[in-house]
Computed example of a mutant assay.
Amino acid sequence: MRMNARFEGQAERQLDFLAEATGLGVSEVLPTCVQRFDEQVRAQRSGRAHFSAFVGRGRGRSDIAGSYKTRLAPGAHG
């Protein structure tokens, strides 16, 4: 895919820095950045999906939500 993009200010400085620091051209830095960002977002979404599979699945006490402040108070037991 071919695209045109405008980078100004901080984004332009960041892009220039990445190109200089890696020795890559801007046209190589951008796809690498997109790939890394994609991996990060997918990992976050995967983690959330994994976590949500466990939320509300316990077989513990059913009164915890209504009494957690009392149970967490100093000196409270069980």
Results as ranks from 00 to 15, higher is better:
residue 52 S to L: 15
residue 27 S to P: 07
residue 9 G to K: 01
residue 78 G to S: 11
residue 41 V to I: 11
residue 16 D to F: 03
residue 34 V to A: 07
residue 28 E to K: 05
residue 11 A to R: 03
residue 58 G to E: 11
residue 40 Q to S: 10
residue 2 R to D: 12
residue 11 A to M: 06
residue 72 L to N: 14
residue 14 Q to L: 12
residue 76 A to W: 08
residue 10 Q to E: 15
residue 48 R to W: 05
residue 64 I to Y: 13
residue 19 A to S: 14
residue 53 A to I: 01
residue 60 G to D: 09
residue 31 P to H: 00
residue 53 A to D: 10
residue 60 G to N: 07
residue 69 K to E: 14
residue 18 L to F: 02
residue 2 R to Q: 12
residue 12 E to I: 00
residue 54 F to A: 07
residue 38 D to K: 05
residue 2 R to I: 08
residue 17 F to A: 13
residue 6 R to E: 11
residue 74 P to D: 07
residue 55 V to A: 10
residue 55 V to S: 08
residue 4 N to I: 14
residue 34 V to Y: 01
residue 28 E to W: 02
residue 33 C to N: 05
residue 76 A to E: 08
residue 4 N to G: 08
residue 22 T to W: 00
residue 5 A to I: 12
residue 58 G to A: 04
residue 11 A to H: 04
residue 17 F to G: 04
residue 24 L to H: 05
residue 70 T to V: 12
residue 66 G to S: 08
residue 27 S to R: 10
residue 24 L to R: 11
residue 20 E to V: 06
residue 70 T to E: 15
residue 75 G to L: 10
residue 62 S to M: 09
residue 49 A to I: 08
residue 21 A to W: 01
residue 43 A to R: 10
residue 33 C to Y: 02
residue 35 Q to K: 13
residue 55 V to C: 07
residue 69 K to R: 15
residue 17 F to V: 01
residue 13 R to T: 02
residue 12 E to F: 04
residue 25 G to R: 14
residue 32 T to V: 15
residue 48 R to E: 13
residue 7 F to A: 02
residue 70 T to Q: 14
residue 12 E to A: 13
residue 67 S to M: 05
residue 4 N to K: 13
residue 52 S to Q: 14
residue 14 Q to D: 12
residue 73 A to N: 08
residue 8 E to M: 08
residue 25 G to E: 14
residue 17 F to E: 11
residue 73 A to Y: 04
residue 4 N to C: 06
residue 52 S to N: 15
residue 47 G to V: 01
residue 55 V to K: 10
residue 17 F to I: 00
residue 17 F to C: 03
residue 16 D to A: 15
residue 65 A to H: 11
residue 47 G to Y: 01
residue 46 S to R: 13
residue 4 N to T: 12
residue 16 D to L: 14
residue 16 D to I: 04
residue 19 A to Y: 03
residue 12 E to Q: 10
residue 18 L to D: 03
residue 29 V to E: 01
residue 39 E to C: 06
residue 18 L to E: 04
residue 71 R to H: 09
residue 26 V to I: 12
residue 25 G to A: 11
residue 77 H to E: 14
residue 75 G to A: 05
residue 37 F to N: 10
residue 50 H to K: 13
residue 69 K to S: 09
residue 13 R to M: 09
